[in-house]
């Protein structure tokens, strides 16, 4: 563990959206993120996993300051995040960058790659204009593209090459923080590994901190120094990736881990029961209790808080903390 010091700290982030159903339906409030705190040290990677819709991307956007949280605060390098769109905020973009899930959508299809990689340099006026072409070439090389590919348009590249181009653009200003929102999920399996390795190499080379968002626990484990598991807008477990993967403490994490296909462990797969979560209709108490196989009656009444266990692992679960004995869940009772 290299010492780093916190680059980014987020405290009690809450983000609500008003969601309208149909054209004249009433607006329903969705709590996409509901009290998330996290801390990221310099040169480190925090992995964020969870089901689709649990608020991972929203957390990423909040952390980057792309949106203002309804409650809570984000501080970056010790300073509070400025108002989105303000000059200070725009200036800060040079220090923090995002890598998107869909590289084709994130690129302007009417401009050649090199122009787009050079764009952050133009915006933040970094380096002399004459040196920018050389810088772009170096960036393209660093992400494994040939400099001549800079003349191509986004649709002329493969998915993996596009993601490399997005990465090159994100790294152009030498940012301290990179938020990667499912950077590999749109890619071929064979290319996924390449991009993952590239991310690791780049981190080593540039010392960038990363928030790595994914629903793939294995990918997160490969790149992260810490991993946080999210469920319905809250972090339910956080710890060292290997420890979390080998010995998941929260029932939801356990379900996630057992869902990873493992040769020779087919029999033990624990399948999540009940409906997938709906952030507009949050269950009482522990949000996971309708699907939790060990839920107790306390779980339906009282929400567990995220707190450290003896070994330092952060968990939000009554049973895992030993406050109550394991129950039999609510899924069966509802059926009866």
């Amino acid at each position: 563990m290299k010492p780093g010091g916190a680059l980014l700290e987020a405290e009690g982030l809450v983000r609500r959206y008003a969601m309208r159903r149909g054209i004249m339906g009433r607006a329903v409030e969705v709590r996409a993120v509901d009290g998330v705190s996290l801390k990221l040290e310099r040169g480190r990677t925090l992995g964020l996993v969870g089901e689709s819709g649990c608020g991972k991307s929203t957390t990423g956007r909040l952390v980057l300051g792309m949106e203002t949280p309804d409650a809570g605060r984000v501080s970056f390098e010790g300073a509070t995040m400025p108002q989105p769109g303000s000059a200070a905020w725009r200036k800060l973009r040079a220090r923090m960058q995002m890598v998107f899930q869909d590289p084709l959508g994130a690129l302007d299809r009417r401009l050649p790659i090199a122009t787009q990689v050079a764009e952050p340099l133009d915006i933040h006026n970094i380096g002399a204009v004459s040196e920018r072409a050389a810088r772009v070439e170096a960036l393209l090389r660093a992400v494994g593209l040939r400099p001549d590919q800079g003349a191509l348009y986004p649709h002329e590249l493969s998915g993996g090459q596009r993601q490399r181009a997005v990465l090159a653009r994100a790294l152009a200003t030498d940012p301290a923080l990179l938020v990667c929102d499912e950077p590999i999920s749109a890619l071929d399996v064979s290319i996924q590994a390449q991009v993952m390795n590239l991310l690791l190499d780049l981190q080593e080379q540039f010392g960038t901190s990363m928030l790595f968002v994914s629903h793939d626990l294995r990918a997160v484990r490969q790149v992260s120094h810490r991993v946080a598991v999210m469920y319905l807008g809250r972090i339910v477990e956080e710890g060292e990736p290997d420890a979390v993967l080998h010995d998941p403490a929260h029932p939801y994490t356990r379900a996630l881990v057992s869902a990873i296909p493992h040769p020779g462990r087919m029999g033990q797969r624990m399948v999540l029961q009940g409906d997938p979560p709906n952030p507009a209709d949050r269950p009482s108490g522990c949000a996971f209790h309708p699907r939790c196989p060990v839920a107790n009656s306390l779980c339906a009444r009282e929400a567990p808080v995220l707190k450290p266990r003896a070994d330092g692992r952060l968990i939000a679960c009554h049973v895992a903390h030993g406050e109550v004995a394991a129950g039999h869940g609510f899924t069966g009772q509802e059926a009866a």
Binding site: L64, M66, R90, K91, L92, R93, A94, Q97, M98, F100, D102, G105, A106, L107, D108, R109, E119, P120, I123, H124, V166, R169
Partner: peptide, 13 residues
């Protein structure tokens, strides 16, 4: 989600 959001994220005016 598209290119405009991405460019905004680069700090463009």
């Amino acid at each position: 989600q598209g290119y405009a959001a991405a460019v905004r994220g680069l700090g463009a005016s």
